[in-house]
Amino acid sequence: MASWLPETLFETVGQGPAPSKDYYQLLVTRCQIIFRWWKISLRSEYRAAKPGETKESHEDFLENSHLQVQVALIFGARILDYVLNLCQGKYDFLERLSDSLLLSIISYLDLEDIARLSQTSHRFAKLCVCDQLWEQIVQSACDTITSDMRALAEDIGWKQMFFTNKLQLQRQLRKRKQKRESLRRQHQP
Protein backbone atom coordinates (compact mmCIF):
# COMPACT_ATOMS: atom_id res chain seq x y z
CA MET A 1 0.00 0.00 0.00
CA ALA A 2 2.90 2.38 0.60
CA SER A 3 3.66 2.21 -3.14
CA TRP A 4 0.48 4.28 -3.72
CA LEU A 5 2.07 7.14 -1.83
CA PRO A 6 3.63 10.06 -3.69
CA GLU A 7 7.34 10.75 -3.29
CA THR A 8 6.61 13.78 -1.08
CA LEU A 9 4.54 12.70 1.93
CA PHE A 10 4.38 16.04 3.73
CA GLU A 11 5.66 19.57 3.37
CA THR A 12 5.28 22.67 5.50
CA VAL A 13 6.97 26.01 5.92
CA GLY A 14 7.09 28.33 8.89
CA GLN A 15 8.78 31.15 10.69
CA GLY A 16 10.82 30.65 13.82
CA PRO A 17 9.41 31.63 17.21
CA ALA A 18 9.59 35.37 18.07
CA PRO A 19 11.75 37.39 17.94
CA SER A 20 13.27 35.31 15.13
CA LYS A 21 12.46 36.17 11.53
CA ASP A 22 14.12 33.01 10.19
CA TYR A 23 12.19 30.84 7.73
CA TYR A 24 12.09 27.05 7.78
CA GLN A 25 10.91 24.27 5.51
CA LEU A 26 10.20 20.70 6.54
CA LEU A 27 9.86 18.13 3.79
CA VAL A 28 9.11 14.46 4.39
CA THR A 29 9.69 12.12 1.47
CA ARG A 30 9.26 8.36 1.35
CA CYS A 31 12.79 7.78 2.61
CA GLN A 32 14.09 10.97 4.24
CA ILE A 33 13.45 14.13 6.20
CA ILE A 34 14.75 17.40 4.73
CA PHE A 35 14.95 20.38 7.08
CA ARG A 36 15.91 23.73 5.50
CA TRP A 37 16.45 27.16 7.04
CA TRP A 38 17.06 30.72 5.90
CA LYS A 39 18.46 33.27 8.38
CA ILE A 40 16.70 36.63 8.14
CA SER A 41 18.37 39.25 10.28
CA LEU A 42 19.29 42.92 10.30
CA ARG A 43 22.33 42.13 12.46
CA SER A 44 25.57 42.38 10.51
CA GLU A 45 26.98 39.06 11.76
CA TYR A 46 24.04 37.14 10.22
CA ARG A 47 23.68 39.05 6.93
CA ALA A 48 26.11 36.81 5.10
CA ALA A 49 24.60 33.60 6.49
CA LYS A 50 23.74 31.16 3.75
CA PRO A 51 20.65 28.94 3.77
CA GLY A 52 21.17 25.58 5.42
CA GLU A 53 19.85 22.08 4.97
CA THR A 54 19.84 18.85 6.92
CA LYS A 55 18.83 15.52 5.40
CA GLU A 56 18.19 12.46 7.51
CA SER A 57 16.70 9.04 6.92
CA HIS A 58 13.49 8.28 8.76
CA GLU A 59 15.37 6.00 11.14
CA ASP A 60 17.99 8.68 11.91
CA PHE A 61 15.30 11.31 12.46
CA LEU A 62 13.57 9.04 14.98
CA GLU A 63 16.82 8.97 16.98
CA ASN A 64 17.70 12.68 16.56
CA SER A 65 16.03 14.34 19.54
CA HIS A 66 17.75 17.69 18.80
CA LEU A 67 16.15 17.94 15.36
CA GLN A 68 12.82 16.76 16.77
CA VAL A 69 12.91 19.59 19.34
CA GLN A 70 13.63 22.12 16.57
CA VAL A 71 10.68 20.83 14.53
CA ALA A 72 8.40 21.03 17.59
CA LEU A 73 9.53 24.59 18.42
CA ILE A 74 9.04 25.88 14.88
CA PHE A 75 6.05 23.90 13.60
CA GLY A 76 4.39 22.68 16.82
CA ALA A 77 3.94 19.39 18.64
CA ARG A 78 1.13 18.19 16.33
CA ILE A 79 3.37 18.48 13.26
CA LEU A 80 6.16 16.66 15.09
CA ASP A 81 3.77 13.84 16.02
CA TYR A 82 2.55 13.61 12.43
CA VAL A 83 6.13 13.45 11.09
CA LEU A 84 7.09 10.83 13.67
CA ASN A 85 4.12 8.72 12.57
CA LEU A 86 5.15 9.05 8.92
CA CYS A 87 8.70 7.97 9.82
CA GLN A 88 7.26 4.90 11.56
CA GLY A 89 5.21 4.00 8.48
CA LYS A 90 1.88 5.08 9.94
CA TYR A 91 0.23 6.80 6.96
CA ASP A 92 -3.12 8.56 6.98
CA PHE A 93 -4.55 7.29 3.69
CA LEU A 94 -7.91 8.98 4.25
CA GLU A 95 -6.22 12.37 4.27
CA ARG A 96 -4.73 11.60 0.84
CA LEU A 97 -8.07 10.95 -0.91
CA SER A 98 -9.30 13.60 -3.34
CA ASP A 99 -12.00 16.04 -2.26
CA SER A 100 -14.43 14.74 -4.90
CA LEU A 101 -14.06 11.15 -3.65
CA LEU A 102 -14.44 12.22 -0.02
CA LEU A 103 -17.56 14.26 -0.91
CA SER A 104 -19.06 11.22 -2.57
CA ILE A 105 -18.39 9.13 0.55
CA ILE A 106 -19.63 11.83 2.95
CA SER A 107 -22.90 12.18 1.03
CA TYR A 108 -23.91 8.71 2.28
CA LEU A 109 -23.51 9.64 5.95
CA ASP A 110 -26.35 10.55 8.30
CA LEU A 111 -26.68 14.25 9.19
CA GLU A 112 -25.41 13.61 12.73
CA ASP A 113 -22.33 11.87 11.36
CA ILE A 114 -21.65 14.74 8.95
CA ALA A 115 -21.84 17.16 11.90
CA ARG A 116 -19.37 15.02 13.88
CA LEU A 117 -17.03 14.59 10.90
CA SER A 118 -16.93 18.36 10.38
CA GLN A 119 -15.32 18.70 13.82
CA THR A 120 -12.38 16.38 13.10
CA SER A 121 -10.20 18.63 10.92
CA HIS A 122 -10.15 21.87 8.95
CA ARG A 123 -10.35 19.94 5.70
CA PHE A 124 -13.43 17.97 6.75
CA ALA A 125 -15.02 21.13 8.19
CA LYS A 126 -14.77 22.76 4.75
CA LEU A 127 -15.99 19.66 2.94
CA CYS A 128 -18.98 19.19 5.24
CA VAL A 129 -20.38 22.66 4.49
CA CYS A 130 -19.53 22.92 0.80
CA ASP A 131 -22.27 23.33 -1.79
CA GLN A 132 -21.15 20.27 -3.75
CA LEU A 133 -21.93 17.98 -0.81
CA TRP A 134 -25.28 19.57 -0.01
CA GLU A 135 -26.30 19.53 -3.67
CA GLN A 136 -25.72 15.75 -3.67
CA ILE A 137 -27.71 15.41 -0.43
CA VAL A 138 -30.62 17.48 -1.78
CA GLN A 139 -30.63 15.50 -5.02
CA SER A 140 -30.80 12.22 -3.12
CA ALA A 141 -33.65 13.55 -0.93
CA CYS A 142 -35.77 15.07 -3.74
CA ASP A 143 -37.47 13.31 -6.61
CA THR A 144 -36.86 16.18 -9.02
CA ILE A 145 -35.00 19.46 -8.87
CA THR A 146 -36.52 22.16 -11.05
CA SER A 147 -34.55 24.97 -12.64
CA ASP A 148 -36.23 27.37 -10.16
CA MET A 149 -35.03 25.24 -7.26
CA ARG A 150 -31.53 25.16 -8.72
CA ALA A 151 -31.54 28.98 -9.13
CA LEU A 152 -32.74 29.42 -5.55
CA ALA A 153 -30.00 27.07 -4.31
CA GLU A 154 -27.43 29.22 -6.11
CA ASP A 155 -28.77 32.25 -4.21
CA ILE A 156 -29.14 30.80 -0.72
CA GLY A 157 -26.85 27.76 -0.89
CA TRP A 158 -27.70 24.04 -1.07
CA LYS A 159 -27.27 23.49 2.66
CA GLN A 160 -29.70 26.29 3.50
CA MET A 161 -32.09 24.90 0.92
CA PHE A 162 -31.91 21.44 2.50
CA PHE A 163 -32.75 22.78 5.97
CA THR A 164 -35.51 25.13 4.80
CA ASN A 165 -38.93 23.60 5.39
CA LYS A 166 -41.18 22.93 2.40
CA LEU A 167 -43.58 25.82 3.06
CA GLN A 168 -40.78 28.37 3.28
CA LEU A 169 -39.17 26.88 0.19
CA GLN A 170 -42.40 27.09 -1.81
CA ARG A 171 -42.88 30.70 -0.69
CA GLN A 172 -39.31 31.62 -1.74
CA LEU A 173 -39.77 29.91 -5.11
CA ARG A 174 -43.08 31.74 -5.64
CA LYS A 175 -41.42 35.09 -4.79
CA ARG A 176 -38.60 34.41 -7.24
CA LYS A 177 -41.09 33.53 -9.97
CA GLN A 178 -43.17 36.68 -9.31
CA LYS A 179 -40.05 38.84 -9.33
CA ARG A 180 -38.93 37.35 -12.64
CA GLU A 181 -42.37 37.89 -14.19
CA SER A 182 -42.54 41.51 -13.03
CA LEU A 183 -39.07 42.16 -14.48
CA ARG A 184 -40.15 40.57 -17.74
CA ARG A 185 -43.30 42.79 -17.85
CA GLN A 186 -41.22 45.93 -17.20
CA HIS A 187 -38.94 45.16 -20.14
CA GLN A 188 -41.76 44.44 -22.58
CA PRO A 189 -42.57 47.30 -25.02
Rank of each mutant, 00 (worst) to 15 (best):
G89P: 07
V138Y: 03
V129F: 08
Q70D: 05
Q70I: 15
F93W: 14
H66L: 08
Y82F: 13
R116F: 15
D131W: 05
I137S: 09
Q119M: 10
I114L: 02
Q68S: 02
G89Q: 06
C128S: 15
S118K: 06
R123Y: 08
V69C: 13
L97M: 10
Q136K: 07
V83A: 11
Q68H: 09
A115Q: 12
C87V: 00
F75A: 01
L86N: 14
N85A: 13
R123M: 09
W134V: 03
Y91P: 04
L109V: 09
W134F: 06
S100Y: 06
S104P: 01
K90Y: 09
K126G: 10
Q119E: 06
Y82G: 00
Q139V: 07
L94D: 08
S100C: 12
K90A: 01
A141L: 02
T146C: 10
D148C: 07
K90P: 04
D131Q: 13
F124V: 02
T120R: 02
I114N: 03
C142G: 00
D113Y: 12
S107G: 02
L84F: 00
I137F: 01
V129I: 11
R96A: 00
L84K: 15
R123H: 11
D113V: 09
F75M: 00
S107V: 03
I145W: 05
A72E: 06
G76I: 14
D148T: 03
Q136R: 10
L101E: 07
I106K: 01
Q68E: 10
G89R: 07
R78F: 08
I105R: 01
F124A: 07
S100P: 08
I106A: 03
I145M: 13
L86Y: 10
T144I: 02
Q132W: 02
I114K: 04
S100A: 12
L127P: 04
L133T: 07
C87M: 02
L67T: 11
C128M: 12
K90F: 08
A77W: 03
I105K: 00
S140C: 14
L101G: 09
W134Q: 05
Q88M: 15
H66A: 02
L102M: 15
L133S: 13
F124I: 04
F75I: 06
S98C: 11
L67K: 09
D148N: 10
S147K: 14
S121F: 12
L101Y: 11
L86F: 10
I145S: 05
V129E: 07
S121C: 14
V69I: 13
A125M: 04
L67A: 07
I74L: 11
R96M: 08
L101I: 12
V129R: 13
H122D: 06
A72Q: 06
D92E: 10
